[in-house]
Amino acid sequence: MTDSPFVVSCEWLFKHLDEPQVVIVDCRFSLAEPQLGRQQYQESHIKGAYYLDLNQDLSSPVGEHGGRHPLPNPIELADKLSAIGVNSQKTLVVAYDDSRLAFASRLWWLLRYLGHEQVAVLDGGFSAWKKAEYPVTNVIPETQQATFTPNLQPQMVVDISVVKNRKDSQEVALVDSRERERYLGITEPIDKIAGHIPGAINYPWQQVTDSSGYILAQQQQQERWLELENPKEIFVYCGSGVTACVNLLSLEMAGIHTGKLYAGSWSDWISYLATGDEQLRTE
């Protein structure tokens, strides 16, 4: 277990499983099979956990621009959070998945973006919970009556215009969170164009955890970012603004609070290439 207020262990969650001010959210998802996460949840999940779907709940519909997972409508997400028992500034939300925090971190970041800092991710995810033989169920919990009022933190997010105008500044670091081969353009399994935003440096999101999905200790998170030399702003992106949130979690754990999400990420960036904007050409 790592020493961070952003992470809870399976042991801690088990001890607090029935507390009314703890709400558990299952975020399991598969980009290749969008229905798989919900099916897995319906078959077996942590007792009392609700399910939020990456496509249906944690994103808004895809448009011409904005990337493959545009940020959700804050009012609609707030209503969904109210319905699962999340009260603003009171309820601790514990998010988990089974993909090394790829999707749980999206909810973690979104809640903070909505002004709710009482949120943590489950260390080791669902696999660690099952390994510890803690209770699982297929019972879907009933909706709740809570009040979640969003208080947007716009400073946490940047769009393509900000990235274009500021990415080459000495005060800004642009971080690509995808695996090395996608960053280098050697392979591109999802988006239509391979490569990366010119000037970006590569910090693969998988390096935040070990191979079993356990988060590396705070000191190791700090060591990850030493080479950045304390830029005033860190713009973090991935393919569509989802796994970049794992790196944003890592930055917060390291005590670096200048990370901002380029929400549209690579899929948004390349959507403008057809417009003939030569500034967006990749290296």
Rank of each mutant, 00 (worst) to 15 (best):
M1F: 07
M1Y: 09
M1I: 14
S4Q: 04
P5K: 05
K15T: 11
H16W: 05
D18F: 10
E19F: 14
E19K: 15
V22D: 00
R28E: 03
L31N: 02
A32W: 06
Q35L: 13
R38S: 06
Q40E: 14
Y41N: 05
Q42I: 14
E43V: 02
A49H: 08
Y50D: 02
D53Y: 12
N55P: 05
S59R: 00
S60P: 01
S60R: 12
E64W: 13
P70K: 03
P74K: 09
E76R: 13
E76V: 08
D79G: 15
D79K: 15
K80T: 06
S82R: 11
V86E: 04
L92I: 10
L92T: 13
V94I: 12
A95L: 08
A95S: 14
D97H: 07
D98G: 10
R106S: 01
R112Q: 09
G115K: 04
H116V: 05
E117R: 05
E117A: 15
V119Y: 00
V119H: 07
F126D: 01
A128K: 07
N138T: 15
N138Y: 14
P141M: 10
T143S: 13
T147R: 11
P150V: 07
P150A: 13
Q153K: 15
Q155M: 10
M156C: 03
V157H: 03
V158I: 09
K164R: 15
K167P: 04
Q170M: 06
L174D: 07
L174H: 03
D176S: 13
D176H: 04
E179F: 02
E179N: 12
E181M: 10
R182K: 13
Y183T: 01
L184R: 01
G185Q: 04
P189E: 11
D191P: 08
K192T: 11
K192S: 12
A194C: 02
G199D: 03
G199Y: 01
I201T: 12
N202L: 07
Y203F: 15
Y203D: 03
Q207F: 08
D210V: 02
Y214I: 07
Y214C: 12
A217H: 06
Q220T: 00
N247S: 05
N247T: 05
L249R: 04
E252C: 12
M253Y: 03
G255E: 10
G255Q: 09
I256K: 07
I256F: 10
I256Y: 02
K260I: 08
S271E: 01
L280H: 01
T282A: 07
